[in-house]
Design a protein around this nucleic acid. Structure first.
Lengths: 181, 181
DNA sequence: CTGAAATTTCAGAAATTTCTGAAAGTCGTG
DNA sequence: CACGACTTTCAGAAATTTCTGAAATTTCAG
């Protein structure tokens, strides 16, 4: 691994940002390194490039694989495992959003539903607030599900359409619910 | 502060989720407590309800205010500061997204642009990857900006329209760029 | 099978983050 | 303008997370 100044800076940045993204420094760095590398790298190369311990590399790769952000790749003729990032950026973004939803939203949605199941307990305000929150999260995740189902091609076209979308909707005359409550 | 079982569970959940959301346990708990409370609470009430130290409450409130998720409120006749969450959930979500963008996306976008400014350094693959990443982030943040500008009413209508949006775009015959590069 | 190469696990060390109590600071009223 | 009520700051303690080296486990060529 050469590690040009470009690599250095990029990798360090992802390391620093890691904590804000809910992953740790080395995990961010490993991802960044693989992201910039045209050829798959093996664990020893990563260990050396980042000056971390071999076991740390192993754990970081494990986490990245659990996120689906890094793939194992067997290179013929080499016994070592090699690793890459998927090269379709849209796929990466979809994975990232899906995983974050799974970790950051879904548990709360379940909890809110569970709390509502427990029936009225006297605090009307709190109960209403919880119901309202649950409804909003449902609306957003339903919308997300719809978008996630679209092919990238259509998604891009939609996004490029930007603010004109609103006008389009008006014209479409969709008679749809307005703001809640 | 009464702290019914409902409050308890809700507050504890937000505390646990806090770490996944990039805030710490007590900050999550303070927010949850205020979210469920119809009346604004003062720092001592929060301190007591959550059994934390007064200084911890102070720091937590400071952070939540910096996110714009908690507002100071002067109650007439009481010298203490009181705190609430905005009650419009859409506003809360907008704030949350805006702040996360500011903290999690914008610094990276700047960094990518900065790296590109430094001009070609020999690694074509890495440079292309960085450019591609920058372009995608720009496309998404531009779209976000467009959406953020819409009134809530329209946003809701748009979201409720769900997957039919794609068909709409097709019919609109917008001749727009397809997938990048 | 065997054993060397590669990988993973894991207990404790190191680093980082969170939390506390005490001290310093702010504010408004008498 | 001084005093008490309230709030913030901050250094160090406590808790949590991350990282390491050594040992255990897996893998596969011979």
């Amino acid at each position: 691994m050469k590690m040009t100044p470009l690599h250095q800076e990029f990798v360090l940045h992802f390391g620093e940002m890691g904590s804000r993204w809910g992953i740790n420094r080395t995990v961010g760095q490993i991802y960044a390194l693989l992201f910039l590398s045209s050829a798959p790298l093996n664990a020893d190369q990563i260990t050396e490039a980042l000056s971390i311990s071999r076991s740390n590399t192993s754990m970081g790769l494990k986490e990245l694989q659990s996120w689906g952000l890094v793939l194992r790749k067997h290179l013929p003729g080499d016994r070592k495992e090699h690793f890459t990032t998927p090269d379709d950026l849209w796929l990466i973004v979809r994975t990232l959003i899906e995983e974050r939803k799974k970790r950051e939203i879904d548990p709360t949605l379940s909890k809110l539903r569970e709390l509502e199941m427990q029936g009225p307990g006297g605090d009307d305000y709190a109960e209403a607030r919880i119901a309202e929150l649950r409804e909003m999260i449902e609306m957003m995740t339903d919308f997300y599900d719809d978008m996630a189902r679209l092919e990238t091609e259509k998604l891009v076209r939609l996004m490029t359409y930007g603010s004109r979308l609103a006008g389009l909707i008006d014209k479409a005359g969709g008679y749809l619910p307005s703001t809640r409550s």
